[in-house]
């Protein structure tokens, strides 16, 4: 009798038990999480670190002979140590740290690219909306977008008679094409239903543009912006090499003229890292803004 009753209670208790076990496992898994994060970080960071190390060693070996034309990393470190260690020094008008120079170039990019983004989205919306605007403008855009950034520089110098607006114009004209073309594609792909909703509500052109067109085309627009900011960063460095001023592009040209090769190498690293950050910044902004639009 007693044994049976014990068995009964055990049997009754049984269904409750597995649930507890599951809950426990989940807790245990959560405890491992920091380790998992560390592991994920390691898998992301260790391979590039190893590759960079190997590249540095190869570079060091290749450029160590006295006849080598380029400096090895050790020499870069020794001679350009000031530039690497003090990005924010300021010793007068032409002797400033690389971070300042990058910021000045970034400021130019911000102005030029900002204008390109505003004008590009507006023009892209026009081309995407109107069949006649597309027929007329699309061939022009397709031809102009293949013109290399620096080819615009002499013309813009002639037009503006000043180096700073010319540099801004080169950024503008370089980065506007992908913005226009991607916006136009995005606008053309707005579902007919959204247009019908807008028509039933009698949204005017401006309301339609702000409330339907821009959010619906946002994923495309941000693709264009991302390509555009990459191009404008390419263009500014090249334009500054020719127009002078205090940007990072001019710094490279100046270093070349006074044979400071290690400085050039440090500047290249700055430019690369900055370009990478710009790209990620626009990508992150795009992911944030379009988080609702991609899922149906």
């Amino acid at each position: 009798m007693s044994i049976q009753s014990v068995e009964d209670t055990e049997v009754k208790a049984f269904p409750a038990k597995p649930a507890e076990v599951v809950a426990f496992a989940a807790k245990a898994r959560r405890r491992i999480n920091p380790l998992a994060i560390a592991r994920r970080l390691a898998t992301a960071l260790v391979p590039p670190a190893v590759v960079i190390l190997i590249l540095l060693v190869v570079w060091q070996v290749a450029c160590s002979s006295p006849t080598a034309s380029l400096p090895p990393p050790s020499q870069v470190w020794n001679e350009a140590y000031d530039l690497i260690a003090h990005p924010f020094f300021d010793n007068g008008p032409q002797d400033i740290g690389l971070a300042w120079r990058v910021l000045i170039s970034l400021q130019r990019v911000a102005i030029g690219f900002g204008m390109a983004a505003a004008v590009g989205v507006a023009l892209g919306a026009l081309v995407g909306q109107s069949v006649w605007a597309m027929r007329g403008l699309d061939p022009v855009f397709q031809i102009l977008r293949t013109v290399p950034p620096l080819a615009w520089l002499p013309l813009s110098l002639a037009a503006f008679r000043d180096s700073n607006p010319s540099a801004l114009f080169v950024i503008f004209i370089t980065s506007i094409w992908p913005v226009i073309i991607n916006t136009a594609v995005g606008v053309r792909n707005i579902p007919e239903d959204y247009r019908n909703v807008a028509r039933i509500l009698r949204l005017n052109q401006l309301e339609f543009f702000i409330k339907i067109m821009v959010p619906a085309a946002a994923p495309y627009i941000f693709t264009g912006l991302r390509i555009g900011i990459g191009l404008s960063w390419l263009a500014i460095v090249a334009a500054e090499m020719l127009t002078g001023g205090v940007g990072v592009g001019f710094f490279i040209w100046d270093a070349w003229n006074s044979s400071r090769l290690p400085d050039i190498i440090v500047a290249l690293a700055y430019i690369g890292v900055t370009g990478f950050c710009l790209d990620r910044l626009v990508a992150a902004a795009g992911a944030f803004v379009t988080r609702g639009t991609t899922a149906k």
Binding site: P191, D193, Y194, N196, V197, I200, L201, R202, I212, P215, A216, A218, T290, G292, T293, A295, K296
Partner: peptide, 16 residues
Amino acid sequence: GPERAVVFQNHSLLPW
């Protein structure tokens, strides 16, 4: 116009 509102077959809510 809004005085003849339409309920669309595929809802057509704005996803954002």
